[in-house]
Structures are given as structure tokens and as C-alpha cells.
């Protein structure tokens, strides 16, 4: 069972070490409220890697209608989405 706190840190680690690596658009540590879309972290390729990572890591299936900026714009938004009763 993954707790909310550890899940959030797992997601943060993936975003920092895989998606944000080498972009230099945000600070090395990504804060909960940092805008990942405006920062260029979750772009068209970033969303593909992020969805793939979330589905594999947390054994979930993210439907296409959920892939909207409101759910992926920050770590806070992602955590809120993952906490939703959908899964």
C-alpha cells in the first residue's frame, strides 16, 4: 500500500530526475505548486512518459478524458488526481 506522502515523493523524484533533467527551467527541487506545463517539464513528450510511469508504478489505467492540464499542471494537482476515488 503506497501512502499519499510517499507516492507524492515518488512522483516528484520521477519528474525531477527524468522529466526535468537538463531543462534548467525550474529549480533543481520542484515544489508542490510549481507549474510543470509553463515550466516546459510536462510537454507533449513529457506527458507520454509521465502517464506511462504513473500507470506502471501505481497499477492504474488513466483514461484519455482525465489527461487534462488541471490534473497534471503541478505535483499538488497530480496528487489530488491520484487521490480521487477513480482508482
Amino acid at each position: 500500500m503506497t501512502t499519499s506522502g510517499s507516492r507524492k515523493e515518488q512522483v516528484r523524484q520521477f519528474i525531477t530526475e527524468v522529466l526535468a533533467k537538463g531543462r534548467g527551467t525550474l529549480a533543481p527541487t520542484i515544489a508542490d505548486a510549481d507549474n510543470l506545463i509553463e515550466g516546459g517539464i510536462v510537454d507533449s513528450l513529457g506527458i507520454t512518459r509521465l502517464v506511462d510511469y504513473l500507470e506502471r508504478t501505481f497499477s492504474i489505467k488513466i483514461p484519455d478524458e482525465d489527461i487534462v492540464p488541471e490534473n497534471f499542471e503541478s505535483i499538488t494537482a497530480l496528487e489530488r488526481y491520484l487521490q480521487s476515488s477513480r482508482f
Binding site: 510536462v42 510537454d43 507533449s44 513528450l45 506527458i47 507520454t48 502517464v51 484519455d64 489527461i67 487534462v68 492540464p69
Partner: peptide
């Protein structure tokens, strides 16, 4: 998915 994301 990349195209979906760009449009949304």
C-alpha cells in the same frame, strides 16, 4: 497522446 496534450 502528444497531440492530445498539445490540443488540450
Amino acid at each position: 497522446l502528444p497531440a492530445l496534450w498539445v490540443h488540450r
